[in-house]
Amino acid sequence: MPKSIWNGTISFGLAQVPVKLYSATESKSVSFQEVHVSDGARIEHKRICSKDGREVPYKQVVKGYEVSENEFVVLDPDEIKAAAGARGKVIELEDFVPEGQIDPVFFEKTYYVGCRDDAEAYRVLMAALERTGRVGIGRFTFHNREYLVAVRALNGVLGLHTMRFHDEVVEAGDLDVDKPGKGPSKREVEMAGKLVESLHRKFDPDDYEDTYREAVLDLIKRKAKGEDLTPEEPEPEEEPADLTAALQASLGS
C-alpha cells in the first residue's frame, strides 16, 4: 500500500466524502548521477552569491520575484502562503461535465483518491459518476498552491487529475504555420485512409514497452565490461519522396 500524500474532503452540494490522495504515476526512466568526467566524482550543487562569489548557506536564502530587471520583491514563506486561498482541505466539486468533452491538452498529473472513514459516501459518489459519465470539476489546494482538478471514476477507484487553465494552453492560432500551396489530392487522402485502417487496432497500453530503458541498462553493462562504445554512422536522412509513390509503396500496390 503506497503512502498517502494528502488528507481532505471532497464535497458536492452538502455531501462530504473524506478522502486521501495517492500518486498514480511514477517515472521508470534510468536515472543517473551527475559526475565529473575526469575523475568520476559526484557533482555537488552549491549556492553561490552572484555578487560576492561566496557560498550561501540555506538559512541565508530568501525568495524574490523579479518585478523589473534586477529589481526583486522579497516574499517570506507566509506571504506566499497567503496566496493559497481559503479552501483549505476541501475539494468542492462545482460543476459536472461530460467525460469525453475535455481535450487531452488540459490534463496535467493524475492521483488516486482513496477513502478515509466513510466508505459509503465514497462508493455513492463513484457510482453516481459512473452512472452519469460525468467528471466533477473543483479546486484543490496542495503545498500552498491551488489547482483546478477533475475528479472521475477510474478503473474502480476515484481519480483526480490536475488540469491546465485555458490560458496555459497554446492554440493553433498562436502559431504561424504555412499551408501548402496545393493540398493533398482526394486520391492521396483515400490511400492514406486505407493505410490508417490497416494499422488500426484497439488501444492496449501493455502492447508498448519501453525498450529504450532496457537498452540503456544494457549499454551500462557493456561499458562496465570495458567495451568500446563508438557511435554508429548515422543513416542518411531520407528525403521526402513523391507522396503518391510513397503511399502506393506503403500499401504494397
Partner: peptide, 16 residues
C-alpha cells in the same frame, strides 16, 4: 521566484 542572498538581495546561482 529566484533564490536571493538575504544579506545583499543578490541572485543566487547554482554552480557545479
Amino acid at each position: 521566484f529566484r533564490q536571493l542572498h538575504k544579506k545583499d538581495s543578490a541572485p543566487i546561482e547554482q554552480r557545479r
